[in-house]
Simulated scan of single mutants.
Amino acid sequence: MRVWAVANQKGGVGKTTTSIALAGLLADAGKRVVVLDLDPHGSMTSYFGYDPDSLEHSIFDLFQHEGNVPEGLPWQLLLSTSHERISLLPSSTVLATLERQSSGQNGLGLVVAKSLSQLWQDFDYAIIDSPPLLGVLMVNALAASQQLVIPVQTEFLAMKGLERMVSTLAMINRSRRQALPYTIVPTMFDRRTQASLSALKLLRSDYEANLCPAMIPIDTRLRDASRAGLTPSQFDPNSRAVLAYKVLLKHLLTLSNAAQVA
Score class of each variant (00 low, 15 high):
4 W>Y: 01
7 A>W: 03
13 V>A: 02
13 V>G: 02
14 G>W: 01
20 I>E: 02
22 L>M: 03
26 L>I: 01
28 D>V: 04
30 G>S: 01
35 V>L: 06
36 L>S: 07
37 D>S: 03
39 D>Q: 08
39 D>N: 15
46 S>A: 14
46 S>H: 11
48 F>W: 13
48 F>D: 14
49 G>S: 12
51 D>A: 08
54 S>N: 13
55 L>R: 13
56 E>K: 10
57 H>E: 14
59 I>G: 02
62 L>Q: 08
64 Q>P: 01
65 H>N: 09
67 G>Y: 08
68 N>C: 04
74 P>E: 08
85 R>Q: 15
93 T>Q: 11
100 R>Y: 14
102 S>K: 07
107 G>W: 11
111 V>T: 07
111 V>C: 08
112 V>C: 04
112 V>A: 11
113 A>D: 15
115 S>F: 03
116 L>S: 07
119 L>K: 11
122 D>N: 13
122 D>F: 11
126 A>N: 07
130 S>L: 07
133 L>K: 15
135 G>D: 15
137 L>C: 11
143 A>Y: 10
144 A>N: 00
151 P>W: 08
156 F>T: 09
157 L>N: 02
169 L>C: 10
170 A>Q: 11
170 A>V: 01
173 N>T: 00
176 R>D: 09
178 Q>P: 05
182 Y>A: 12
183 T>H: 00
185 V>T: 01
185 V>M: 03
186 P>A: 02
186 P>G: 03
190 D>V: 05
193 T>W: 07
193 T>A: 05
199 A>V: 02
200 L>F: 01
201 K>R: 15
201 K>T: 13
203 L>P: 01
208 E>K: 07
215 M>T: 08
219 D>F: 03
227 R>A: 15
230 L>T: 12
232 P>R: 11
233 S>E: 12
235 F>I: 05
239 S>Q: 11
242 V>M: 06
247 V>Y: 04
257 N>F: 00
257 N>W: 02
260 Q>S: 04
